[in-house]
Design a protein around this nucleic acid. Structure first.
Lengths: 351, 351
DNA sequence: TTGAAAGCGCTAACAG
DNA sequence: CTGTTAGCGCTTTCAA
């Protein structure tokens, strides 16, 4: 058993209240008492019991975070940003991985509530729509902020990139490079950001007067295998085969590249390719893959800022805050023109 | 304020003790009481206060974990394994990122202790040597298990791969492929596993009667830039230039490949290359990089098993447990023979 | 400047 | 089967 404040007080020859005052740095403690307590702390290797403190003060200084998959490199970057912003503000961050399972996600939200975290950062697993009651039950008084993916029916603060514009930027780039047959491979369209990216794709085509061909919209998921099959099927169709593909996220992006390689094709020689999100250490791919990169660290840190703000406001009313961060298009080799294959390397461009 | 058990009891018209019994699933509660309580729980959207429960029961069912860098893909994989093993055993896992900072690491160990976690999984940041007192203070009654990197002076349970043998296997492979001039690029040698990998390298050379040339040992760190410089310097030296390089970890591996590409060289045409740890989605590199892969998920899950075991034993004596998991060599294109460049693809080989 | 004491929400005896 | 009660370790009045 670790030493308690009482034992510490006894050893130091003061009352438990004085010990508390020393630890909290409260003023009004004689130097002599302070010394004695400090010595006793060292002697016993005392660590205050945060559990008891929290019970008493009704404060945990802890933020909870639920993400869908910690093995996807995008999320650890967000976590880093969130964790360090939290730490700077004197808060802890407790991260849970829902493994893209909605039930588990709900359970984890409950757990965090039971742990009395003061706020929650949520990157939701699925695209379910929350009814008003469900949402209320889910929230139950703890401030929530959504990152990256915005669940429908949950009117809460949020931080993410402007997915539509980012996708539009990527597609415009391909169009500028001379592509007109551009396929898009999306993840689950239940996710609002996937829809937005699709919208950006369509907008870009329209602005350039290019037709929107449904045969060029390949509806995927987060299953590597499934997406690969989809890509291969699309790439095999001799008629109307695209000269470029745009993957709306890292998972489908990886699958797309995998398919291209597996079929013995190469990029940009046979087909151009742009992904949303980097495929991890992107710049080491040969050839480099052009991609839309999100400010992951900043998404995390901004989210914490907004959340802490919301917490500080207490019950005070304030409109929902929607932060939209700019994404950047990193142009590498994979998006060269259909025929010329001019490698435009290392250029980048912002929204 | 969330509802308390007392309010719940009042609404249900029973005593707080009965509520507790219902929640804990204790036997000996009338069906009628149970119903009333369950209804009240739903009505109030009640979530038990884990803080109060922990204070009372002196149990948190929480394991702590401290890792050096969550953005290195190896660690999230370990976390997944640990988290799911913990969850299966009814434990929570609380993960902290020390950002490779030893002070922060110590602070985090203290925090976990204050949070009264029941055990700690530690992937240590640095290679500092712990004195007996420091170690005792650090541990202070909570069971610790070390993963991946074993700190000196800390006699605790551990789980990692057999680094020496794994490295030896990689080097033997290169030798078999006809290489005799093999450079090794290590990370900080304060880390015990880096030393082991170096030892494996030397052992393999010796067994084959090849000389150990100090000019072929490039001492790096975890700084990308520094390692890159080191590599480039080594690769530029016209005399005694290696035909193969072996990077002892993912960070130096990435830097090595970066340097090779940056210098306009390619692998395996100009130089062969094997890394310890995958460079994330390894198989998408063109050409594929031969590498030693560690069973990251299993390292995490085994560690939790051993730790829970240790916790269950309480104070009972038992010798320190050292689990050594086998690593696998995944042979891809980057390790072809110096001249023939025969691509041996997809073969793998275990310790 | 200090000590005594109440009580945070819960569980675990224990008595009825 | 159910209610009452005594703390868990801490902070925070309140008196002294």
């Amino acid at each position: 058993m670790p030493p308690t404040q009482k034992e510490l007080a006894k050893l130091a020859g003061v009352s438990s209240g004085t010990v508390s005052n020393v630890i909290s740095g409260a003023t009004g403690v004689s130097e002599r008492s302070r010394r004695k307590v400090l010595d006793a702390i060292k002697a016993l290797n005392y660590q205050p019991n945060l559990i008891a403190r929290s019970l008493r003060t009704n404060r945990t200084f802890t933020l909870g975070m639920v993400i869908p998959d910690i093995t996807v490199p995008f999320f650890p970057k967000i976590i880093r940003g969130a964790e360090s912003a939290a730490r700077q503000a004197g808060y802890y961050l407790s991260v849970l991985d829902s493994e893209s399972n909605e039930e588990r996600e709900a359970a984890m939200m409950g757990l965090l509530r039971s742990q009395r975290v003061e706020g929650v950062l949520l990157v939701t697993a699925g695209g379910r729509k929350w009814s008003a009651e469900e949402a209320a039950a889910l929230i139950a008084g703890v401030p929530i902020i959504c990152l990256d993916r915005l669940p429908k029916g949950l009117e809460v603060d949020s931080v993410c990139v402007d997915d539509c514009r980012a996708a539009e930027m990527a597609i415009s780039h391909l169009i500028e490079m001379g592509h007109t047959q551009i396929a898009i491979i999306t993840g689950p369209l239940t996710l609002q950001n996937e829809q937005e990216r699709l919208r950006g794709y369509r907008q870009a085509l329209q602005k350039s007067g290019l037709p929107i061909q449904s045969s060029l919209h390949w509806r995927g998921s987060f299953e590597q295998e499934e997406v690969s099959r989809l890509c291969q099927k699309g790439l095999l169709s001799s008629v109307g085969r695209p000269t470029a593909v745009f993957a709306t996220n890292g998972v489908t992006g990886l699958a797309a590249i995998r398919s291209i390689y597996a079929m013995g094709l190469s990029t940009p020689k046979d087909i151009a390719c742009v992904t949303f999100d980097e495929l991890t250490s992107e710049d080491f791919f040969r050839p480099g893959i052009t991609s839309v990169v999100q400010p992951a660290y900043e998404i995390g840190s901004r989210a914490v800022e907004v959340l802490l703000n919301r917490i500080a406001m207490g019950t005070t009313y304030k409109a929902v805050e929607k932060v939209r961060l700019p994404a950047t298009l990193i142009v590498r080799e994979s998006s060269a023109t259909p025929l010329a294959q001019t490698a435009t390397k290392g250029k980048s461009r912002s929204q």
